[in-house]
Design a protein around this nucleic acid. Structure first.
Length: 268
DNA sequence: ATGGTAGTCGCACTA
């Protein structure tokens, strides 16, 4: 079957439900993974999502901050959430999709990490590093690597490659692109031989961003972006991806999120 | 070298 997947840090799903509806209408993905929904489960705009044709929703919400959700046309066989760092933060939800061969989809919102890239003096940065170490442990501990059909998406808050940021040199000491974060992200990737789907379609020598700061006067003119959002697949699905698109235009929508949707199609 | 914006919740915090 053909499978279309989107991931988007929405920065408040209640405030931007109209933009979610616009994306679903224009792109018609089978599944949309959202991050930073910024509401408790009961406040999620379920009715609007169902009206758009998405009957299946898995939510791990939290009051005011963070929170992730998966909305889907495809039924779920299982829904799980995992708590990282014992903090009680809502930063992960996963579902088993009812597709031929099965598919586990993991949706993450990794801690941003604050401003100061020193875990000794910035506990938010220490939390981010610990979170990634826990991801490595978790995926490294899973059995049957070569048979696991898994997709991992989300706002991972790390731009690992030189051309995942507008200036490699100027961002080396900026949280999201520091060597310690990049090393830890590479360890997560190595823990289950994850494949970076976005870079399968855009060479590493080309700039590729999914986020532009709200603080720029003119985000498009400055174009100082970073690739903070990712789609990964396990080796069992390495030949599945057929296309990938970063919906840059969504950054210019009215009352936009600072992140744009990343969309992939796969043959399952 | 600094400050710039956005959202939620309530007048501070996270990003």
């Amino acid at each position: 079957m053909n499978f279309k997947l989107a991931t988007w840090n929405i920065n408040s799903v209640r405030l931007r439900i109209n933009l979610v509806e616009k994306l679903l209408a224009e792109q018609n993905p089978d599944v949309l993974c959202l991050q930073e929904i910024k509401c408790i489960n009961d406040a999620f705009p379920l009715k609007d999502i169902r009206k758009a044709g998405y009957e299946h929703v898995a939510i791990n919400g939290q009051k005011g901050y963070h929170g992730v959700a998966i909305v889907s046309r495809i039924p779920f066989k299982k829904v799980e959430t995992k708590e990282f760092c014992g903090k009680g933060d809502a930063r992960h939800v996963s579902v088993e999709l009812d597709v031929p061969g099965g598919l586990q989809l993991h949706n993450f919102y990794v801690p941003a990490g604050g401003d100061e890239p020193d875990p000794e003096i910035n506990e938010k940065f220490a939390h981010k590093l610990a979170f990634m170490r826990e991801m490595t442990e978790w995926y490294g501990g899973m059995k049957k690597k070569s048979e696991n059909r898994m997709v991992l998406v989300g706002d991972l808050n790390v731009a690992p490659l030189e051309h995942d940021v507008w200036s490699h040199k100027q961002l080396l000491k900026v949280v999201s692109h520091t060597p310690i974060e990049v090393d830890l992200m590479n360890e997560v990737i190595a823990s289950h031989d994850w494949v970076d789907v976005m870079r399968r379609f855009v060479p590493e020598t080309e700039k590729l961003y999914s986020w532009w700061s709200y603080r720029a006067k003119d985000w498009a003119a400055a174009d100082r972006g970073r690739r903070l959002d990712h789609i990964w697949v396990t080796p069992a699905l390495k030949d599945a991806p057929q296309s990938m698109q970063v919906l840059r235009e969504a950054r210019g929508w009215e009352r936009a999120s600072d992140h744009v949707p990343v969309i992939a199609t796969m043959k399952l």
